[in-house]
Write a protein that binds this DNA or RNA. Structure first.
Lengths: 230, 230
DNA sequence: CATAAAAGTGAGTATTCACTCATGATTAAT
DNA sequence: ATTAATCATGAGTGAATACTCACTTTTATG
């Protein structure tokens, strides 16, 4: 897929998503995509062989090239729907809800909700997100997609939430960027540590988040007020 | 390199390190290694070509195979010294210092020092660390090296520091693991966000760390009561 | 300087792998 | 049922690439 086609593909994909994927929804098309997610995630894009994908999907190797003229097209066609899956719910549906919530709920409840939701969304899509993040490091088109379609908007949404909380006097008067960064860092760091050093994580994420949010809000420093937790 | 050779290579490398790299220190050996770091970091291990490495290092392709019989050996021989470079200073030299400091300095100073040191160590070795982290996902030997030789010990060191602080009443009585996790998450998350979304980071890391540490210690929540610094 | 050993080279090779295509199978249309 | 159109196949192909090796150049030794 050429770089200049991405914008077009993006538009098509968005409307396709809305129309419940009429096209390209042959059974084998999906089998190939799912097999590719599994293989790419295990070996990386460049380290994966189309022959192995075919075997995993239980189709002939030629069938792959019926749907995806180039190997790279498999990558792009799995990543673009992913971007939509993350992008749309985050920006279109949840956006309002979160901002609404952020005016009603306490900051603790709000953060726990956000952490839990994001964590599960990320955890359920871990294989393909792994592919997205890693290949974004090597492939300019993917990187562009990532930064232009996702990061900018997510950051702005996050800043909105932080500022709403600030207005209610729930958070300290630190630059919003810094606050958002601390929160996002914690979530990202938690997920990565969880994956890389699972031995370090024996408790349930749900429980961990309560502590994590507590630390984010109240810090790790000892205060005079006795907040006894174990 | 076969899996069972790694332990041997590890031992050899440790003594080599101590003896100031007597062997294998031909000029071209190093040129190839440095070129490989650059190329692997840009394209990933599987996506890199030995021809490109040769070009980058300005040696003949055959020369590479004089020093590294298999392409994979380049990867292993860059990663093992890296593990030593990170592992030894962290565990042997700094270990005592940090634990000493953790008994003298305030938690704020301590954390700022640790964050700064770790950040610079990581930042200066970003290319090769990127290779280590990514290839650990695909290569069992590297993954083993990573978890067995690094993570366990770093975590234990971290826990030691946290507990020393606890004894001095500098941190709240939360499970040490959780506290360490929060701190590590913040640092890792910061570094990654910094790399992935540089547009989000206009300030200097040194300045950011002060805020980051402040947030880690005091939290983002607004407090009515005055904070107690010790 | 003579000789041997070590380091370095790059054209050549064997293999791997993304992709093609001629043919067969399946479905849809008339 | 006949025809047309689409879907599916896997042996085959050409290009790419990790690795080899016969040879050249450099360095070390007496």
């Amino acid at each position: 897929m050429r770089s200049e086609d991405i914008e077009k593909f993006w538009e098509e994909s968005v409307s396709k998503e809305l129309n419940e994927n009429k096209k390209e929804s042959g059974e084998k098309y999906k089998r190939v995509l799912n097999a590719a997610i599994k293989i790419f995630s295990k070996r990386g894009f460049a380290g994966s062989r189309t022959s192995e994908i075919a075997k995993e999907a239980d189709v002939a190797e030629g069938t792959i090239f019926r749907y995806f003229p180039k190997k790279e097209d498999i990558l792009m066609e799995m990543i673009i729907p992913l971007v939509i899956k993350f992008y749309r719910p985050i920006l279109l549906e949840k956006n309002r809800k979160i901002l609404e919530k952020s005016k009603k709920e306490s900051i603790t409840e709000l953060l726990e909700t956000i952490f839990k939701e994001r964590y599960h969304l990320i955890d359920e899509n871990m294989d393909i997100l792994k592919i997205l993040c890693i290949e974004a490091l090597y492939n300019k088109d993917i990187r562009t997609l990532f930064t232009e379609k996702i990061s900018e908007d997510i950051l702005n949404l996050g800043l909105g939430v932080v500022e709403a909380q600030k207005e209610q006097g729930e958070v300290r008067d630190i630059e919003s960027k810094q606050i958002l960064r601390a929160g996002m860092s914690m979530l990202i760091g938690y997920i990565l540590l969880n994956r890389f050093v699972p031995s370090f994580f024996k408790s349930e994420p749900e429980e961990d988040f309560k502590v994590l949010v507590d630390i984010l809000i109240n810090g790790i420093g000892s205060k005079k007020e006795t907040k006894s937790e174990k």
